[in-house]
Design a protein around this nucleic acid. Structure first.
Length: 731
DNA sequence: ACCCCTCGAGTTCT
DNA sequence: CTCGAGGGGT
């Protein structure tokens, strides 16, 4: 056999691409450097030589993968193995003709990147609403019928499908070939896991069969079967690696490997349940398209077509009964309106489709001893009780904490320290306490006394009176405000959080530590951190756990955030009642920070805010209060000295109706109001309740009154419902 | 006066 | 993910 040519240092490696393959024998790079022969530079190879070497390398890589992953008997060190891969890739880069389906870089992946690239979904990946009973299923069907204006007698088919418990991915096929695979992420943007997905046998590299659309995104679930999961955990345990809590975590952990070779060695499978962008659809029904997807070579779980609520309930019960005999985990049943034209009419409510819902199985429950109740103080002073539990496994995960929401919740359920409580994971994620097993309560237990002072700063904690309803708020808040360290730290954490300033390397731990030592006390301090470094406090680079490199990385990360979009900036301020959406609304309304501040300094600030659609009395008052507080003004001024806040940029929606405001009035015959609204919003228009000079169209049906009159007065264009239909279908 | 939806603010664990 | 509350429509 030809000797392996290795010398890692001789070949270029991009920064951050260090290949991590934990557990491989012989980690010491010095050892690898001993046996070496200088390889011929790639540029000096003839195509024939390159081809030969490339083939040889591919074989070697495959052999070592097998030794390492399947037989756990590696022959070469990590560094040597990496060198093989890098050499192979260098060859491919110089001679792209060498790249084939079989080439190692595609089959088991390009060099691991420092992290996954982001992929924007052409069609958003949504989450589903939930129902937990037959009754709620009937309500769901009734809602759909109401929305579509279908009487109880009109036919309406639903499909019932297994809800596989794995992780969702979107597989984009262009001209029939797998082009990109992405995780769901936040629904709009996921991570590029193409290289990993190529290693999953259930997923074809190419769609087979006729009538393959030019572009088609197959969506479905990557999962791990029970038997494969058990075997994997056995192997993990034998090799001393950590085992996985459940098949879902194992699947997620396996897919999200930076090194696709690891994914390749994991027994991942795939089921398709839907699709995203499609240049053409092979059918007009959900079950028809799923059949076509199966025909292209994908596993598709069985679909039951249901003509009534009774049939849906029967399908659910049948699946529930069979659950234990399945080779994989499911966590419920998904119902979808079968006809695609109806799906389109139904549209979406925020992030969930109106035409589908998940009927979840009741989650696994467990009992645990409540050791104590901790009070956490949020950035608004909200005091949230958290149950500290004796660790217990629920749904394959060890749970130690569970939120108790607020003091009324504790009183309602009469939860006492020392009690045995019933725990479940809501939606199989967030632990919650259902109630107490009273028989197990100790005789000397006492109701929990919710503190009336802040556990951190000692200030009074009060429940405010809601002036409108005359009721007490559910939350008790610390009144310490500026003097409360907990609130200050939480505000800073909010400021640097992902949706606000998103400063890399400045996580919650660092914020707490920097606050404690006085390095950062107010937001603007973040941006003077470097200038003050080595002043009254020791240099950051000399601080424990830090070094020159990590310190300079942090300073660099901070620098990149000196320019920030207005909406992010407003959100970061942490004004009560102003979250991401309202921050964006304010940014859109005022355009620039200067203008926003100018208006807020005027006497009519409250009214200017209040007249914005979506901002009522409470939110307007909260914003006004924020700007009246001298400390906040100082914080703002200090930030403005350090930062460039960029004016708001309009999002571009390519549609005639983009940015327009329309008003519907009178009776609509063909549409429900919701339907009309979602149509308008899909085209980038806003639906308002009242007519003003900013209104572009008023769509008037029979019985229209004052709004129609006002439209005539203002000269706003008036459309019939039919006109509106024409406009929508033209767009 | 009530209902529905959306938003905000809090939460867990990997 | 859940709860509570705000906003807006019926």
């Amino acid at each position: 056999m030809r000797p392996i040519v290795v010398r890692p240092d001789a070949w270029p490696r991009a920064e951050g691409q260090a290949v991590k393959r934990p557990g491989r024998a012989g980690k010491n790079p010095a050892k690898a450097a001993r046996s070496q022969v200088e390889p011929k530079p790639v540029d000096e190879l003839s195509p024939a030589e390159a081809k030969k070497e490339h083939e040889f390398l591919a074989g070697e890589i495959e052999r070592h993968d097998k030794l390492y992953y399947q037989e756990d008997q590696p022959e070469i060190s990590d560094a040597d193995y990496d060198a093989l891969r890098l050499r192979s890739e260098a060859l491919e880069q110089r001679f792209p003709g060498l790249i084939s389906e079989k080439s190692p870089s595609l089959r088991v992946g390009a060099p691991p990147a420092a992290k996954f690239a982001k992929v924007r979904h052409a069609v958003r990946m949504l989450s589903l609403g939930n129902v937990f009973s037959e009754e709620e299923t009937r309500e769901f069907v009734a809602r759909v019928r109401r929305f579509l204006k279908l009487g109880a007698g009109a036919p309406l088919d639903f499909t019932a499908e297994l809800k596989i418990d794995g992780l969702s991915v979107s597989l984009r096929y262009e001209r029939g070939k797998l082009a990109v695979a992405a995780t769901r992420g936040d629904g709009s943007e996921g991570e590029d896991v193409t290289a990993n997905v190529r290693t999953i046998a259930d997923i074809p590299q190419e769609l087979s069969g006729r009538h393959v659309p030019d572009v088609f995104e197959v969506r479905g679930e990557v999962y791990m079967a029970h038997a494969d999961f058990a075997a994997l955990n056995r192997r993990q345990a034998q090799s001393g690696a950590k085992t996985f809590a459940n098949p879902r975590n194992a699947a997620a952990g396996s897919l999200r490997q930076l090194d696709p070779a690891i994914t390749a060695a994991r027994p991942l499978r795939f089921f398709s349940w839907g699709w995203g962008e499609a240049s053409a659809l092979p059918a007009q029904t959900n079950h028809g398209v799923l059949d076509a997807i199966a025909g292209w070579g994908f596993p598709v779980p069985p679909v039951t077509l249901c003509k009534s609520e009774d049939e849906m309930a029967a399908a659910y019960r049948a699946i529930e009964l069979n659950r234990a005999s399945l080779a994989f985990d499911i966590d419920g049943v998904v119902y979808k309106v079968d006809r695609l034209d109806l799906q389109e009419r139904l549209g979406f409510v925020s992030r969930t489709p109106r035409w589908a819902t998940a009927h979840k199985f009741s989650p696994e429950k467990a009992t645990a001893i409540l050791r104590g109740i901790e009070i956490q103080v949020g950035r608004t002073g909200a005091m949230t009780p958290v149950a500290k539990l004796e660790p217990v496994t629920v749904g394959g995960v060890v749970v130690q904490n569970a939120t108790l929401h607020n003091e009324d919740e504790i009183a309602r359920k009469d939860i006492r320290i020392g009690d045995t409580v019933i725990v479940q994971r809501a939606g199989d994620v967030i632990p919650q306490i259902l109630g107490v097993i009273l028989e197990k309560r100790a005789a000397n237990s006492a109701p929990f006394a919710f503190p009336t002072v802040c556990p951190v700063c000692g200030s009074h904690a009060v429940r405010e009176m809601n002036e409108k309803t005359g009721k007490l708020d559910a939350v008790r808040r610390c009144t310490g405000g500026l003097i409360c360290a907990a609130q200050a730290v939480e505000r800073l954490r909010h400021f640097v959080s992902r949706r606000a300033f998103d400063i890399e390397g400045l996580g919650e731990k660092h914020i707490q530590a920097f606050f404690d030592e006085g390095r950062i006390r107010a937001p603007a301090d973040i941006f003077t951190l470097q200038a003050r470094d080595g002043g009254s406090l020791p240099k950051l680079a000399e601080k424990e756990g830090w070094g020159p490199q990590s310190a300079s990385n942090l300073f660099a990360a901070i620098e990149t955030r000196r320019a920030i979009a207005l909406e992010r900036f407003i959100f970061a301020l942490g004004i009560r009642h102003v979250g991401e959406t309202t921050a964006k609304l304010l940014a859109k309304t005022f355009g620039s920070l200067q203008e926003f501040r100018r208006v807020m300094a005027e006497a009519g600030a409250f009214d200017r805010l209040n007249e914005i659609d979506g901002i009522g009395d409470e939110v307007a008052q909260s914003i006004v209060d924020f700007f009246e507080e001298p400390h906040n003004r100082e914080v703002l001024a200090a930030l403005e000295r350090e930062l460039t806040v960029e004016p708001y940029k309009l999002d571009v929606v390519p549609s005639q109706l983009a940015g327009a405001t329309v008003v519907f009035t009178g009776k609509l015959e063909r549409l429900t109001r919701d339907e009309a609204k979602s149509q308008a919003e899909r085209l980038g228009a806003k639906v308002a309740g009242s007519v003003s000079k900013n209104t572009l169209y008023v769509v008037a049906g029979p019985g229209a009154g004052s709004k129609l009159k006002k439209a005539e007065e203002l000269g706003v264009k008036i459309l019939s419902e039919d006109d509106w239909f024409d406009l929508v279908s033209a767009a």
